[in-house]
């Protein structure tokens, strides 16, 4: 009972959600207010070119670092780090592809970029949450 009351990983993921998603959105609203603009961007409009994929990639980097610092065996650390890197790279690739398409004037579908980045960011968030739970459990076992 006491074990699952540990919410360190929940606070950690909330920090990323707040700083990576909520703060940019609030900053855009603040900018619009400061400049007397009617701009009221929704998160979907703000991240419509796949920027959530970039947020996912940044999130993955910090979890890979945490994993490499852990006391898991090298095989486990390597497996986790490679899987996280692959998922993060795929999430970041959505943003890169959308940027390249816009820059070269190729046909680009913002609706699809938003959907792809949202889905892959969701995958990144769910995987890093579980990895953080596993890291938390292992730290407790190693401390015994």
């Amino acid at each position: 009972m006491a074990e699952w009351m540990s919410v360190k990983w929940l606070l950690w993921i909330s920090l990323y959600l707040v700083l990576g998603v909520f703060v940019p959105w609030a900053t855009a609203l603040a900018w619009a207010h400061q400049h007397g603009s009617d701009l009221r961007p929704r998160p979907r409009q703000l991240f419509q070119r796949g920027e959530l994929g970039l947020v996912g990639l940044v999130l993955v980097i910090s979890v890979i670092w945490n994993l490499l610092q852990s006391q898991y065996m090298p095989q486990t650390r390597a497996l986790g780090a490679v899987l996280l890197a692959v998922i993060g790279t795929m999430a970041g690739a959505v943003w890169i592809e959308t940027y390249c398409r816009h820059s070269t004037g190729m046909a680009s579908n913002d609706e699809r970029a938003w959907r792809d980045s949202r889905n892959l960011a969701f995958l990144v968030f769910s995987v890093v949450v579980v990895v953080e739970i596993l890291l938390d459990r292992f730290a407790k076992v190693a401390a015994l």
């Binding site: 795929m90 959505v94 959907r115 792809d116 889905n119 892959l120 969701f122 995958l123 968030f125 769910s126 995987v127 949450v129 579980v130």
Partner: peptide, 14 residues
């Protein structure tokens, strides 16, 4: 498309 697969894997993970 990986985005189609990502949601199911995310639910499995959750």
């Amino acid at each position: 498309r990986l985005a189609d697969v990502a949601v199911t894997v995310a639910y499995l993970s959750l």
